[in-house]
């Protein structure tokens, strides 16, 4: 009971601070995923079209994923120095795999006969992409963004080690303090909450965009 009381006290005293870090944490994750989406979706489309590229690109983004987060941050820090941007770059790199892979599978998963129909009706390549392939693979691409965002929120916690702030700072402060259990929780609970929420919201989008539900949009 003490722990809970301490937690409430901590939030009462440091509410504004926790909120700032929460917001900062979210922005880092969101930017990382956003940039990854900007780069990753076109790459996914490209390798779906030129299948010779796909094994190379996929294994490359796979390799990035295997590097431990702390190691990646440390290496990036050597090049880019301390700060938020380095964390965002790391998150960007981690988000690439789910986004590229899902875009690739999504586009390849569109029924071949639909592409043939579009082609035979006189659609240009770009029109097929815009009017057929993208709308039909949107939900799969969204699923990729969802995974990426949840992973990013988790990894962003260690950004504090290179001075990027975020909810990780609160957790680390807790680990350094004697009897800091409440402080650890004060950082960990919002992090988990953010991840769950992000998963939920993105999942809702994903369902909304799936072709079977296109009715609801119009």
């Amino acid at each position: 009971m003490d722990l809970l009381k301490e937690l409430v006290t901590y939030y009462n005293d440091n509410g504004a601070y926790v909120w700032t870090e929460f917001y900062r944490h979210f922005l880092m994750s969101a930017y990382g995923v956003l940039f990854a989406a900007i780069v990753g979706i076109p790459i996914g489309i490209l390798i779906a079209r030129y299948s010779k590229l796909s094994p190379w690109v996929i294994s490359f983004v796979n390799v990035i994923q295997t590097i431990p987060a702390l190691a990646l941050l440390a290496v990036l820090m050597l090049v880019m120095g301390l700060g938020t941007n380095t964390v965002i770059l790391a998150l960007f790199l981690y988000s690439l795999l789910p986004i590229v892979k899902n875009t690739y599978t999504g586009i390849l998963g569109v029924d071949k006969t639909l592409k043939e129909a579009g082609n035979a009706m006189g659609m240009t390549r770009f029109q097929i992409l815009r009017m057929v392939e993208l709308p039909l693979s949107l939900s799969v691409i969204m699923a990729g963004l969802r995974t990426a965002l949840v992973i990013a929120i988790g990894i962003a916690t260690i950004g504090t080690f290179i001075g990027a702030g975020g909810l990780g700072s609160i957790i680390v402060r807790g680990t350094n303090a004697a009897e800091g259990g409440a402080i650890i929780l004060a950082g960990a609970i919002p992090t988990a909450l953010m991840a769950v929420l992000a998963d939920f919201v993105m999942g809702w989008f994903e369902r909304l965009l799936s072709p079977a539900n296109s009715r609801k949009l119009s």
Binding site: E116, G122, V132
Partner: peptide, 22 residues
Amino acid sequence: RVQMRREIGYVIQQIGLFPHMT
């Protein structure tokens, strides 16, 4: 090629209607 195809109707066995369009 594209222009020409628009002037030729095409029907396939799998029907191939786009599920996301009315």
